[in-house]
Structures are given as structure tokens and as C-alpha cells.
């Protein structure tokens, strides 16, 4: 089986969020970069588990980003990808990124294309769904369980207030979230092996962006917490009812 795992580089979950150049660019000063947690913990690790059960599985990794994305993709290789492709584009338009991934996907006979449910920077949750339209493949999103048997995938996906089980004939696209797998830490052997695994850099295909970021802003600071004494719970209820008007 051939799996293509989409890897995105995002700021660390504790990174300070600030902007530069007249609030048009994310301030990367001092930011630690990580693999988008949904791509790593859930999507990539599940792909590795599938390979551990069936060693004939090939795991290819793809990232769309500049040279600064290479430490991230090497880490993903250290966890267990077989080879990686970096499309040399710094676009932050989901459509452009999806077109780059689709162009690579068309060249390989992938049974499964896996993404995280969204990235933790732009939170757009677009890539999987866009790939489904571009490649004309079935798509199941927000999956928390995946088993593959022959050419059939059995997937559990989140629905409001519960879960649904889906069966899909491969090839397909799946977006992964919590429950799918557990976080792993690369071991020394993996880190050594990753140094010599193939990492191919390709030029992007020409695509026009559909959107552009005009300005970032930060939410207004909370005006300050109103403290209520522990023995004044009727006062708290009154505030929630009459001031906040939420109950």
C-alpha cells in the first residue's frame, strides 16, 4: 500500500503570536517550528502503525514550503516516513497548496492521502476537502480511527454528539484527529536513518491564489476578571443572568 502523508510546519503551540510589517506578516522572531500536531501525532503516526503491520507499505511525505521546512520534514522521516518531497513554495493560500499536493499525488499511485484535521496556525481545515475535489476521490474528515483491509478502509469519524463508522473503497483522502494514534518521539536509529532518506525538492506548479491576507489583528484584551468571594455564589448567578446575560 502507498500512503502520502501531508506535513505542515507550524509555530510551536506555546509560541507568542505577534505580527510585523504593519500587521501583514506573522512575526517569526524567536519562534520554534514544529510539525503541525494533527499531521504528526495522528496522521503520520497512524501511517507508521499501518506500515508496522504491513511492511510492504510505502510512506511518502509531502510538504509545501521553503528550505526552512526541511528540519520538520527530516523529523517526520525520523519518525518513520520512507521518503519526502518538498514543493518549494511559500504560499499560504489553501488552494495553491492543495494544487501542489494534488500535482504530486497524481504522479504516485497512492491508496491513502492523509492530512491532519487542520493546521494550528491558519486553522483553515481546507486541504483534504480541496484534494477530494481536485483528485475526484472520496473524503472522510475528522477521523479518529482507521483500519485498512485489502482495498477497504473502515473509519470512525466525529459527528455532533457521537461517532459514525464509514466504509470507503480506496483510494481516498482522510483527515485525522485525536484518537487516531498516540504521539511518538523519534529514536536515535530513526534520526540517523532520516539523514540518508531521500528528500526531493520540486518546483511548484503555476496556480493563481484565490485569496490574500490583508491584515492580522489580536483580540482585545479582557478588561479584567471580576472576582467573586466563594461564599457569594448567588451573586455570581445574578451577574451571569443580569450582566453577562448568558443563563
Amino acid at each position: 500500500m502507498n500512503i502520502l502523508v501531508c506535513i505542515s510546519k507550524t509555530p510551536d503551540t506555546t509560541a507568542k503570536i505577534a505580527f510585523t510589517e504593519g500587521n501583514t506578516k506573522f512575526d517569526e522572531n524567536g519562534v520554534q517550528w514544529i510539525i503541525n500536531p494533527y499531521d504528526e501525532w495522528y496522521s503520520l503516526v497512524r501511517a507508521i502503525e499501518i506500515k508496522e503491520k504491513d511492511p510492504t507499505t510505502n510512506i511518502h511525505l509531502i510538504t509545501v514550503g521553503g528550505p526552512e521546512a526541511e528540519p520538520i520534514i527530516r523529523k517526520a522521516l525520523a519518525l518513520g516516513g520512507d521518503e519526502a518531497i518538498r514543493v518549494n513554495s511559500n504560499s499560504n493560500d489553501s488552494y495553491v497548496i492543495a494544487q501542489q499536493i494534488a500535482a504530486i499525488a497524481k504522479q504516485g499511485a497512492y491508496d491513502l492521502i492523509m492530512t491532519g484535521k487542520e493546521t494550528i496556525d491558519y486553522n483553515s481545515a481546507c486541504i483534504g476537502s480541496m484534494l477530494s475535489a481536485i483528485l475526484d476521490l472520496p473524503y472522510v474528515s475528522l477521523a479518529n480511527h482507521l483500519e485498512v483491509n485489502g482495498n477497504t478502509a473502515t473509519i470512525q469519524r466525529e459527528i455532533e454528539g457521537g461517532e459514525e463508522t464509514n466504509e470507503v473503497i480506496l483510494p481516498m483522502i482522510i483527515s485525522c484527529q485525536k484518537g487516531m494514534a498516540e504521539q511518538r518521539i523519534p529514536n536515535m536509529r530513526g534520526i540517523m536513518a532520516a539523514r540518508t532518506k531521500p528528500l526531493k525538492v520540486v518546483d511548484p506548479v503555476a496556480t493563481n491564489a484565490h485569496t490574500s491576507i490583508k491584515e492580522f489583528s489580536l483580540p482585545p484584551a479582557k478588561t479584567g476578571v471580576k472576582l467573586i468571594a466563594p461564599d457569594q455564589m448567588e451573586e455570581l448567578v445574578k451577574l451571569l443572568k443580569e450582566e453577562a446575560k448568558v443563563i
Binding site: P11, I17, F19, I120, D121, Y122, N123, A209, H210, T211, S212, I213, K214, E215, F216, S217, L218, P219
Partner: peptide
């Protein structure tokens, strides 16, 4: 909303 609710971005649809 971007950065998991920690900021906003104004996006132009072209």
C-alpha cells in the same frame, strides 16, 4: 480566526 483563536486575519477573496 487564526492561531487557534489567538488572533484574527482579514482575508481578501480575489
Amino acid at each position: 480566526t487564526v492561531f487557534s483563536g489567538k488572533a484574527f486575519a482579514s482575508i481578501k477573496i480575489e
